[in-house]
Design a protein around this nucleic acid. Structure first.
Length: 578
RNA sequence: GCGCUCUUAGCUCAACUGGAUAGAGCAUUUGACUUCGAAUCAAAAGGUUGGGGGUUCGAGUCCCUCAGAGCGCACCA
């Protein structure tokens, strides 16, 4: 039950009626795209506001206010309208009867699980690829943001009716895997009692690889190296990946994340997909052997002009064409990634979303071109970029150096502050803005810490039920029209905006909106709570008035319910007692 | 050098994707606990949305330009 949607639909009906009645002849397809019905930013402008008159003014060549006046009678006739005002440059502001709002609480509580359900996705499938960290070591702090962002987005899209596939791409091919194998072998020797001294530069020095060494020793004993070179490589590769992916999965699990699909780059390469993309591209005449211009900034002495096998990504807006094969004839990373995207397209039969780190922004346009070419433009891909996270300790940045080995792992952070705190804080900024994560601040029990602030509001709700000595679920859903205080009604209006917030967050792929909504809802609730301190009449529990108390407790219940809904999308546990 | 992403109050950030007087929190000043949890609340003050142009009924949001920050820039992954 999205009340704003209901009146939005009324507005569209009015447009049709108005067109008919007034004999105006105009094409309203543009207007239908731009028409809005929103809660105004400032509450003095009523409950809902539409820009319809302003949009019509272009077509009718009339002053928007004049049109608004003509529309006014139509809107006044809509159900439960108290007043219609024309304001500013031509906004039509609607105020509904108070009872409409108090009735909302009734509707919400009569169907608490489903009142906010909306089927935007209509069961459509979406493939959401996120994290996809290289399988060469455990996840570190920087991975947390993309992980949480992707996971919250998946959860959010599921909530509004999409069928989301949570996918992780394992980059288990290429030179970094060769280095991993080499590094693992050193650790194997170490476990075998050999003194290994320092790990050579360029290899992976992390001690976590000792786990791989141990696993190798356990599985193959002391004679692993008697196998052929190729066999050793494959055996070590397999065990290394197994051990490290297990670490990664465990860390993700600790963060509340379970992926649906893990796809291996290695498998993509050994399958038929690369010949498939070649067939598609060649059919469209999108490949050629040729030369690329040197990029402007590159040192000319280092530039070597050579012929390459290229994909015409410029056809789809990329800045330059991209190489598909290396000079030794093997496929480039981009080519296999293209094949991987074809794989996703085939399996998903729906749109794609990629969540990347900020250091991969330069990669987006070529992937867009690839998806466009491979799907004939029928599949859309949205790439969300997560900006940097600055780890701080009490306002000062924590210096990390991979070489010195003192980088903070994801597991460290989870152990330090808990998964719920990480999940919330990582979403308190838009994804494309960099974010400070301060270990001290996120653990603070004060308003400065938004997780605490929201949880505290929820705990307070619960505390009221305890004081009233009634269980939330035993409240009778009646007398809601006793909710008549200005702040009570404002709070109800804000709760009524919840489905709208969900919709906006889902459509724009912006889960941070959920966090901001919850913070504001909590703020309104805390405020109302304190009203009762200034004035006895505003307390939720009014000793001598059971009916009024019941009505107010229903409002509190709706607040608690909405906080829980929001948190559950973020996969955060609500706290009932601090 | 080229491209992408950014720049909003002293600080950290929002702003319903083009809407009305740009909103919060910190910090500052001042108030509210014999009463449902003061871990909270109320109020004041704080702005030429980096500068300059343009598009239109209307711009933080779109276009151009300049300045600054971050990231990326032929076979790596």
């Amino acid at each position: 039950m999205n009340i704003y949607k209901i009146y939005f639909n009324h507005t569209i009906e009015i447009l049709d009626k108005f067109k008919l009645d007034s004999n105006y002849n105009f094409d309203n397809t543009e207007i239908l795209k731009k028409i809005t019905l929103e809660p105004p930013k400032n509450t003095i402008n009523g409950d809902m506001s539409t820009n319809l008159a302003m949009l019509l003014s272009k077509n009718l060549k009339l002053n928007p206010k004049e049109i608004a006046n003509k529309l006014k009678p139509y809107i006044s006739k809509l159900p439960n309208v108290l007043t219609v005002d024309i304001a500013g440059p031509g906004f039509i502001n609607i105020t509904l009867k108070q009872k409409t709002w108090s009735d909302c609480i009734k509707k919400i509580l009569l169907d608490p699980d489903n009142w906010d359900k909306q089927d935007l996705g209509k069961g459509k499938r979406i493939n959401l690829e996120y994290i996809s960290a290289n399988p060469t070591g455990p996840l570190h702090a920087g991975h947390a943001r993309g992980a949480v962002f992707g996971d919250a987005l998946a959860s959010l899209l599921n909530e509004v009716g999409y069928k989301v596939i949570r996918e992780y791409y394992i980059n288990d091919a290429g030179s970094q895997i060769e280095k991993l194998v080499e590094s693992s072998l050193i650790r194997y020797d170490e476990c075998n009692g050999k003194n290994i001294k320092e790990i050579p530069v360029g290899l992976y020095p992390g001690e976590y690889l000792q786990e791989v060494g141990k696993a190798l020793l356990k599985k193959y004993g002391k004679n692993l190296k008697q196998n052929s070179k190729e066999d050793i490589f494959n055996l070590v590769r397999e065990v290394s990946l197994e051990v490290i992916m297990k670490m990664i999965k465990e860390d993700l699990y600790k963060l509340g994340i379970e992926m649906d699909v893990f796809t291996s780059e290695h498998n993509i390469i050994s399958g038929n997909l690369l010949t498939d993309i070649l067939t598609i591209l060649e059919e469209k005449n999108l490949t050629y052997f040729g030369f690329l211009d040197p990029p402007k900034g590159v040192d000319p002495t280092k530039w070597e002009r050579r012929e390459q096998f290229l994909f015409k990504s410029t056809v789809y807006g990329d800045e330059t064409d991209r190489a598909l094969k290396k000079s030794d004839g093997s496929w480039t990373y981009f080519a296999t990634d293209m094949a991987y995207h074809l794989d996703k397209i085939n399996r998903t039969n729906g749109d794609l979303i990629n969540v990347l780190g900020a250091d991969h922004t330069g990669y987006i346009s070529r992937i867009n071109a690839a998806v466009n070419a491979l799907s004939n433009g029928s599949i859309s891909i949205d790439t969300k970029v997560c900006a940097l996270v600055n780890l701080m300790e009490n306002g000062k940045p924590i210096k990390m150096s991979k070489r010195a080995g003192n980088f903070v792992t994801l597991s460290d952070i989870i152990d330090a502050v808990g998964k719920d705190v990480i999940r919330f804080i990582m979403l308190t900024r838009r994804n494309d803005q960099s974010l400070d994560f301060d270990f001290k601040k996120v653990m603070e029990k004060s308003k400065e810490n938004p997780v605490f602030y929201v949880q505290y509001a929820h705990a307070r709700c619960n505390s009221i039920f305890k004081s009233a000595e009634i269980l939330e679920e035993n409240l009778h859903i009646e007398n809601t029209d006793l909710l008549s205080g200005k702040d009570e009604i404002e709070l109800i209006k804000f709760i009524s905006q919840w489905p709208r917030t969900l919709e906006l967050a889902a459509k724009n792929h912006e889960p941070h909106r959920i966090c901001y909504y919850l913070i504001e809802l909590s703020s309104m609730f805390h405020s109302l709570w304190n009203k009762g301190k200034d004035n006895f009449n505003f307390k939720f529990i009014v000793e001598k008035d059971i009916k009024l108390t019941n009505a107010r407790l229903l409002l509190v219940k709706a607040v608690a319910l909405t906080i829980r809904k929001g948190l559950s999308i973020l996969k955060i546990k609500p706290i009932f007692e601090m």
